[in-house]
Every structure is written in C-alpha cells, then in structure tokens.
Amino acid sequence: EEKRQVKQVAKEKLLEQSPNSKVQVRRVQKQGNTIRVELELRTNGKKENYTVEVERQGNTWTVKRITRT
C-alpha cells in the first residue's frame, strides 16, 4: 500500500515538471523511511531516467530529491 502511494507521489511530481510526458515506474526500493523510486520519463520519444527519493513525514509523503540518472 505505501509503495503504491509513493509511486503515485513520484509520478505526479515528475509530471508537474513536464506535463505532456509519459512516466513509467521501473523500480521501488525501501531504505528506512525513505523510498527510492526509479522512473522512466518519455517526452516525444526521448527517454530520460530519474530517481525520486520520497520520505515519510507524519502521514504524508514528501519528495526529498529528484536525480536524473
């Protein structure tokens, strides 16, 4: 359940930055209360990979860091 929520948060964050792209989740890793989500962003056939680190704060998820990989 929490992985599902985190995927959603990570996707939304990337789509905010580039709204007309397609996002696909590649991998989800958990480390303590930080969850790392690896995503693939496609814009006009151009692929970019991103890693989004999401942290739990109380009962909400906040995006800590977005890295292009």
Rank of each mutant, 00 (worst) to 15 (best):
E1M: 06
E1S: 08
E1L: 04
E1V: 06
E1A: 10
E2V: 08
E2C: 08
E2F: 05
K3V: 15
K3Y: 15
R4P: 02
R4M: 11
R4Y: 09
R4L: 08
Q5K: 11
Q5I: 12
Q5P: 03
V6E: 02
V6F: 04
V6K: 02
V6T: 03
V6G: 06
K7H: 07
K7R: 11
K7V: 15
K7L: 15
K7I: 15
K7E: 15
Q8E: 09
Q8T: 07
V9T: 05
V9L: 14
A10C: 05
A10S: 03
A10P: 01
A10G: 03
E12Q: 13
E12M: 09
E12S: 10
E12W: 04
E12N: 10
K13M: 09
K13A: 15
K13P: 02
K13R: 08
K13C: 08
L14I: 10
L14V: 08
L15Y: 05
L15I: 04
L15C: 04
L15R: 05
E16M: 06
E16F: 03
E16R: 04
E16S: 08
Q17L: 15
Q17E: 06
Q17G: 09
S18Y: 15
S18F: 15
S18T: 06
S18K: 11
S18H: 15
S18N: 15
S18M: 13
S18L: 13
S18Q: 10
S18W: 15
P19E: 02
P19Y: 02
P19R: 03
N20C: 07
N20K: 08
N20T: 08
N20Q: 08
N20F: 06
S21E: 01
S21M: 03
S21L: 02
K22R: 11
K22L: 13
V23G: 01
V23E: 00
V23A: 09
V23F: 02
Q24N: 11
Q24R: 15
Q24L: 15
V25G: 01
V25M: 03
V25N: 01
R26E: 03
R26S: 06
R26Q: 07
R26P: 00
R27M: 06
R27F: 11
R27S: 11
R27E: 03
V28F: 12
V28C: 06
V28K: 01
Q29D: 10
K30M: 15
K30A: 14
K30W: 15
K30D: 11
Q31E: 13
Q31L: 14
Q31S: 13
G32R: 04
N33C: 05
N33K: 10
N33W: 06
N33V: 06
T34V: 13
T34H: 07
T34G: 07
T34Q: 06
T34W: 09
T34S: 08
T34R: 09
T34I: 12
I35Y: 15
I35H: 13
I35C: 06
I35D: 00
R36K: 14
V37Q: 00
V37I: 07
V37A: 02
V37T: 00
V37W: 01
E38W: 14
E38S: 11
E38C: 08
L39Y: 02
E40K: 05
E40V: 14
E40T: 13
E40N: 05
E40D: 04
L41R: 03
L41S: 06
L41T: 06
L41I: 08
L41K: 03
L41H: 02
R42Y: 15
R42P: 00
T43R: 06
T43V: 09
T43E: 10
N44D: 10
N44M: 10
N44E: 12
N44T: 05
N44R: 09
N44A: 10
N44I: 07
N44G: 10
G45R: 06
G45F: 11
G45H: 07
G45C: 05
G45W: 09
G45I: 04
K46A: 09
K46R: 12
K46D: 06
K47H: 12
K47V: 13
E48M: 08
E48S: 07
E48Y: 10
E48W: 11
E48G: 03
E48V: 08
E48C: 06
N49Y: 15
N49E: 09
Y50T: 01
Y50F: 10
Y50V: 08
Y50E: 00
Y50W: 14
T51I: 13
T51S: 09
T51H: 05
T51G: 02
V52P: 00
V52W: 01
V52A: 06
E53R: 03
E53V: 12
E53W: 14
E53H: 07
E53M: 08
E53I: 14
V54L: 12
V54E: 00
V54C: 06
E55W: 12
E55K: 05
E55I: 13
E55F: 12
E55P: 00
R56I: 06
R56N: 04
R56D: 02
Q57R: 10
Q57A: 11
Q57I: 14
Q57T: 13
G58M: 05
G58F: 07
G58Q: 06
G58L: 06
G58I: 03
N59K: 10
N59M: 12
T60M: 13
W61Y: 13
W61N: 01
W61C: 03
W61Q: 01
W61L: 08
T62K: 12
T62L: 13
T62Q: 12
V63Q: 00
V63C: 04
V63M: 01
V63G: 00
V63Y: 01
K64R: 12
K64S: 12
K64L: 15
R65W: 09
R65S: 15
R65F: 08
I66R: 00
I66F: 04
I66P: 01
I66S: 02
I66Y: 03
I66D: 00
T67P: 00
T67N: 06
T67Q: 08
T67W: 15
T67C: 08
T67M: 12
R68I: 09
R68P: 07
T69W: 13
T69E: 11
T69I: 12
T69A: 09
T69H: 14
T69R: 11
